[in-house]
């Protein structure tokens, strides 16, 4: 059925290609470009507008921020990736800290689905890069930091390097040549989950995390 439909649809489209005016040359769109300090300020302010927390921290001390915020929020367990890019620093920083308890899971999510759905308080993941204009984090989830980690637990900590802060989404797509190497899932996350479906009133934490806590690592 579908092959027949395919041929019929394509035939109709080819036979009756409408007489388009050739689309004119692409117009140049002015894109913002900020020096680093302003870029960070823009990034932070955009995220804070949608009730995300942003902590700008010296790269050497980011785990302290993670720890203190997690403690302050009385998070009882924190999921992290054992083989992910943040693991070493987290393990070193935690030492024998009891709370929040570090949890790592390397099994496919299906095998411990109940735990992540109903018993994990928070997860920490890295972000590949970020976007200043819209206050967005770019995540390419992988085998170490799966997709559900940034989605299912009520709190999501995300750690990103200020060096990777692009001005715009367009800049990131071009600079990293995304078209050549799209992953299974590329994500932009720009705040905690939200909805305004009930009488135009914003509510947070609909299906995804209620809290998004961003730790932006700077070199100074």
């Amino acid at each position: 059925m579908t092959a027949k439909a395919r041929d019929a649809i394509l035939r109709r489209l080819r036979n009756k290609q409408p007489g388009f005016d050739t689309p004119s040359q692409p117009v140049a769109i002015e894109t913002p470009s900020w020096p680093m300090e302003a870029r960070i300020a823009q990034f932070k302010s955009m995220l804070e507008t949608v009730r995300a927390e942003v902590h700008v921290t010296a790269a050497a001390h980011w785990t302290e921020t993670l720890k203190s915020v997690a403690e302050e929020k009385q998070i009882s367990n924190l999921l992290y990736a054992k083989q992910g890019p943040l693991a070493q620093a987290i393990e070193r920083a935690w030492g024998d800290t009891l709370l929040p308890k570090l949890v790592c899971e390397e099994r496919p999510v299906d095998e411990w689905k109940e735990q992540i759905f109903f018993h994990i308080d928070a997860a920490v993941t890295s972000a590949r890069a970020a976007i200043a204009e819209t206050g967005s984090l770019i995540l390419w989830p992988d085998a170490f930091e799966p997709r559900t980690w940034s989605l299912v637990p009520p709190v999501h900590f995300v750690v990103v390097d200020a060096e990777k802060l692009y001005n715009t989404f367009a800049e990131a797509v071009e600079a990293e040549q995304w078209a050549q190497q799209m992953p299974t899932n590329a994500l932009l996350i720009s705040g905690p989950s939200k909805s305004a479906d009930i009488q135009q009133t914003l509510a947070y934490g609909v299906h995804g995390p209620t809290e998004l806590i961003v730790i932006l690592k700077t070199s100074s």
Binding site: M46, V50, E106, R107, P108, V109, D110, E133, T134, G135, S136, D142, A143, P146, R147, T148, M182, P183, T184, N185, A186, L187, L188, I189, S190, G191, P192, S193, K194, A196, G208
Partner: peptide, 23 residues
């Protein structure tokens, strides 16, 4: 809706690949 961007922009290019833990 007058949002600079939505909370999520989700780009899907394939099913779960070998080694991936979800999807």
């Amino acid at each position: 809706t007058g949002q600079p961007i939505t909370t999520y922009f989700n780009m899907i290019s394939s099913p779960r690949k070998t080694g991936e833990k979800d999807g």
